[in-house]
Write a protein that binds this DNA or RNA. Structure first.
Lengths: 143, 143
DNA sequence: TTTCATATTGATAACAGTTCCTATCTCCGT
DNA sequence: ACGGAGATAGGAACTGTTATCAATATGAAA
C-alpha cells in the first residue's frame, strides 16, 4: 500500500508497519498527542520503535495531509487526527486541550486578505481556564 | 525607576540598565525580534550582557505587559512592542513577519465562549507568501 | 515467488532554544 | 556608608527536534 507523497519531488511513500500504527493512534478522536505521547503509547505494540521514527513519520503524515500539525503556544508540538475545521483552547493552568468547532467563526483567511500576502492558512489557539481549574482557583481564593 | 510587577507575589521590579536597554529595542515599531535578535543588537551597547539575562528580562517585561510575547509557529519565540491589537502573517518561504490590524476581525474571544472554558486570550497567526516570494515562485514556475 | 531498487528503520550524535545555578554585584532604603 | 533584597554574568544542563548512516524491510516487476 502506498499513499500520496507530500510533493512531486518525492517519488513514493511506503505504508510501513510503524507508519500504519502511528496513523492508527489518530483514529481516536479528540486527542492531540505530542510526539512523545505517540511514542509512549506505540511502544506497547512496537517496543523497538525509535523516537526518531515517530518524529519522522508524524512529519511525513502531516505533509501528506493525513493528520494535522498543530503549532501552538505550548512547548511541545502536537498533532491532531481531526479532519473537521476546528480550533483549540488550552488551559493555562493544567495544559488540557479541547476542541472548539469553527462553525461560528468567519473565514479568517479571507478577513486577513489585502495586506500584501497571499494567505495560505492560519493557526488559532485560545488560552483559558478549564472548568476543573476554575473551581480549584475559586476555592483557593475563598480561603 | 520601578515598574508594575507581573503579579502580587513579587514586591518590586527594578528598571535596571540592562532591562531599560532591552525595552528600548521595542520602541522601534514593526519589529518582532527573537531573544537572539535582541541579544545580538544589545551587545553593541552592553557587550557583557548574557543571553540568559535577555531571556529573563523579555519574560519579565512581557509579564508586566510592557511587551507582548508571541507564541507562533516558527521555531523561535518572538516578542512584540506593539501596543495596538493586531495579528501577524508569516511568510512560509522566507520567514518574514508582517502586522495585520485586527480592526476587521470580530472579537474572537467572545466567539469562542460557551465550551466550558473561561477564555483569557488567543494567539492567531496567518501563514502565507509575501510579495517577494510570490514573485520568485512565479518566475520559477514559468521556467 | 524471487529479485531488486530504494524508502525506511533504529541508534546515535548533533543541534538550537531555553532554563537553571552560583558567585558576584548593584541598587535602594536606612 | 551600610546591609540586604534582588539583579546580573557566565556557563552548564536540559528539552525537544533534526540529521546521519549502516542495516533492513517494502512494493513492484519479472
Amino acid at each position: 500500500m502506498k499513499f500520496k507523497p507530500p510533493d512531486d519531488t518525492v517519488p513514493l511513500l511506503r505504508m510501513t508497519r510503524q507508519r500504519r500504527i502511528i496513523l492508527e493512534e489518530f483514529h481516536t478522536p479528540g486527542r492531540h498527542p505530542t510526539p512523545d505521547d505517540v511514542y509512549m503509547r506505540i511502544r506497547r505494540k512496537l517496543p523497538n520503535i525509535s523516537l526518531g521514527t515517530v518524529y519522522r513519520n508524524l512529519e511525513i503524515l502531516s505533509q501528506a495531509k493525513l493528520i494535522k500539525k498543530l503549532r501552538l503556544g505550548c512547548r511541545q508540538r502536537r498533532y491532531d487526527g481531526g479532519l473537521h475545521r476546528h480550533y483549540h483552547v488550552r488551559c493555562v493552568k493544567c495544559g488540557k486541550i479541547s476542541d472548539i468547532p469553527a462553525d461560528s467563526f468567519p473565514d479568517l483567511d479571507d478577513t486577513a486578505k489585502g495586506h500584501g500576502f497571499k494567505i495560505l492558512g492560519h493557526q488559532l489557539e485560545f488560552e483559558g481556564l478549564c472548568q476543573a481549574c476554575r473551581k480549584a482557583g475559586r476555592s483557593q481564593k475563598g480561603r
